[in-house]
Design a protein around this nucleic acid. Sequence first.
DNA 1: TGCGTCTATAACCTGTTGGAATGGATGTCG
DNA 2: CGACATCCATTCCAACAGGTTATAGACGCA
Lengths: 314, 314
Amino acid sequence: MDVDTRLVRYFVAVADEGSLTRAAQRLFVSQPALTKQIRHLETLLGVRLFTRSRLGMTLTEAGRALADRAPALLADCDRVLRETKSAASRAARVLRVGFLASAANEATQDIIAMFGRLRPGWRVDMRQAAWSNPTAGLADGEVDAALLRLPFPGQDAFRVEVLLTEPRWVALPSAHPLATRDVIPFRDLWDEPFVAAPDETGWWRDYWLATDDRDGRPPRIGATTDHPDDWLQAIANGYGIALAPQSSARFYARPGVTYRPVTGVSPSQVGIAWPPEAGANPVVQDFVRCCLEIRAEPLPPADPDRADGETLDE
Amino acid sequence: MDVDTRLVRYFVAVADEGSLTRAAQRLFVSQPALTKQIRHLETLLGVRLFTRSRLGMTLTEAGRALADRAPALLADCDRVLRETKSAASRAARVLRVGFLASAANEATQDIIAMFGRLRPGWRVDMRQAAWSNPTAGLADGEVDAALLRLPFPGQDAFRVEVLLTEPRWVALPSAHPLATRDVIPFRDLWDEPFVAAPDETGWWRDYWLATDDRDGRPPRIGATTDHPDDWLQAIANGYGIALAPQSSARFYARPGVTYRPVTGVSPSQVGIAWPPEAGANPVVQDFVRCCLEIRAEPLPPADPDRADGETLDE
DNA sequence: TGCGTCTATAACCTGTTGGAATGGATGTCG
DNA sequence: CGACATCCATTCCAACAGGTTATAGACGCA
């Protein structure tokens, strides 16, 4: 009795949504494909999992039994695969650290340097992730730890420590009328077109559109990008504006793009996250400890440009 | 990151056997197919799981990590699917009981009758299994409990109670020279061709060939069958002889087939088995209780033919 | 009556799986 | 030393499974 975990994930999506159509778009497959797969799962088990109606798909008792147990099963599955990949990198003495562009900053090199002293012989492999991968590879075991903007989707399944908190600013085309203002209230930006992250990032996309701070009215989308370079390009080209952490003003400075402080949006946080099972991995623990130490007492700046910007968290 | 459980099972087999070739025949696939699948799993994970050599396949550290965790994962998977199927039959008020032909006997009807009084409204669905399915569907959740000959492959994963112990006899073509003897020492049968269960039953096949009682010399196979009817037919046709529980002499009497007691082979046991998770299912518990009650005090025989044969266990 | 919202079905394309045959490297035994 | 056994890898081919688009059918609602 072999069941592809994909089938189970499909099942969970349909059970969650109560509808093939909606589940299909959440999974980025066509509705007929989902129909077939769910039927396939049912014949595989010899059990009817849903009762169909015009209103959608309702779980049968058997379906309910599976829906109750499947998420834990899938999580176990993911954990085992993560542990396997982690064992491989451990054997090679490589610590894989994922990061979203906006989550790395000046402190990162200090962290790596400190880790290097703590664990000579180990190599840190920093992997930048696209925004469509909001856990930077943590979820599928591609990395042992990740520097992320908080919150991130699925955060509850991981261990997280906050490293810093900083205000969100806005990035505008330099020619934009508001670019001359010193500080911009967010509500003045409600009707501006935004450069957004791809749909499939869900939560992440909404966070950077600040949908919570718009008083319910929907954002206008001027462009969608998946990478910092495209993002800057889109803003410079005037396709739209975007919120960004304050530190982007230094890291992603570019002619044609101007950054300005914004009032009326909550600040953003950077955190270090690692999978729960890495609690048993002393190397990951050491890396996390480096992050926390650097947070507590940043190394003395080698360069005066270094010390501006972040507000330490605590 | 979706991995078919089939891939994991393949991996476990190769890890166990330390060889693609041997694992392939255990899995009843060709060796090239296995080669491809293992490579596929490796590229899927982005991790080398084995180091290849002329001596076979050796686990890498990552492979060891996976091999340590995979069996539990697969067991969880099977359990969840079993529970799903079980929920379905429970909702329909059906108790599914599997049995191997030779494990059902006169007591079975008494058990069902007793269960019927204990659980009115419930239906017992008795499902005879082929010998190629030595757990009678217990392993893949097709049944809630099973009447089996002991021991059976994978027995440790289930709860088992012994119901009766009876000697093994031999079934011969009536025209066979030995058919005139009252009792036959097993060693007189060592060189006879046997009608055996299919290869893939492994343990089960060996048990009924009594390979343990042959002093190391290999059995001769005259024919292979997967079902009682074929089995009787093969014996009647003279393709070979076979060991069988004493009670077969009554249940599988047929012109052209003669049963005789045999000395020098261990007796056979019948047991009731159920999955550990069914401990939470009172209906399964009731059925097991019926089995044990009938074992302890068989109902008074309605027919004089009924009481011969079995030796009660304890 | 026409529209929107569901699921089911049909026709089609492609990638993957599995089988048989074969190759190549390496030991082993007479 | 040569024949043979034992591994894994490769190639070629047939079958199938999974995906897509387009469309049908059922139903409630304005």
